[in-house]
Amino acid sequence: MNKTENQKAWFFVLPVLLLVAFNALVPLMTVVNYSVQETFGDNTFFWAGVLWFEEVMNSERFHAALGRQLFFTFTILAIEIPLGVAIALTMPRKGIWVSVCLVLMALPLLIPWNVVGAMWNIFALPDIGLLGRTLNAIGFDYNYTRQPGDAWFTLILMDVWHWTSLVVLLSYAGLVSIPDAYYQAAKIDGAKPFAIFRYIQLPKMKRVLTIAILLRFMDSFNIYTEPSVLTGGGPGNSTTLLSIDLVKIALGQFDLGPAAAMSLIYFLIILLMSWVFYTLMMRNEAK
């Protein structure tokens, strides 16, 4: 669309700008402030320069948490995106089943995150939970509170349960926007189902899929409540993702300096990766 040049448009944006700036800039400056100072607890602060940044960058603990975070994010993306597309492809296009499917599938998205964590915590317990009990009954030695492997399995299953529907809804929206004429043309040309998927459906879903990947990437990198209720980062530190580690340092040990430095590094990583995604997305849209 042709846009008119109009500097007065700034007045339209002003309320948004003020509200978001109040919420974003003041806390961000607080974090920056902590990250360059040292304190001995009596509310007196000393300039510490980049000490905390060096400490965090060199700390084994941060590397381990970042590694776990990357593993988590890429695993759930690798499962949720293909699974979500597959389910969207098999969903009915017309009739009352569409509404039934949409309503039931959207349900996990609207459950408060700590309830999701608590629900899975109970569901997976080996003695009173349906999942844990069933797995043990069919011969698996499953106990997510003791064995790191089981904890990871439960964590990933929970996230797949929680968020695959978002990918389904987005892909489905992309699919229904394809005009019937495209399919008829493909039929006349005798195209195989895979060819229809590859050359008609996938290109049409490209934009919504980019959005799905971007949203899932950002949100899974920020995930805190669900794993902290489900496993609390344990057993040991085996499922301590970045957010959980950060809260442990900031509120558990009250090491504000290192926590603030870690926050900024953490935020910059998300920002950088999202910027890459966003730029690619906008370039695609411009084509």
């Binding site: 978001v20 806390p27 607080t30 950002m218 920020n222 970045l242 957010s243 953490y266 920002l271």
Partner: peptide, 12 residues
């Protein structure tokens, strides 16, 4: 701002 981790902003 949609990307900011809530854990980072809780204390501030």
């Amino acid at each position: 701002n949609r990307m900011a981790p809530a854990a980072v902003f809780a204390l501030p």
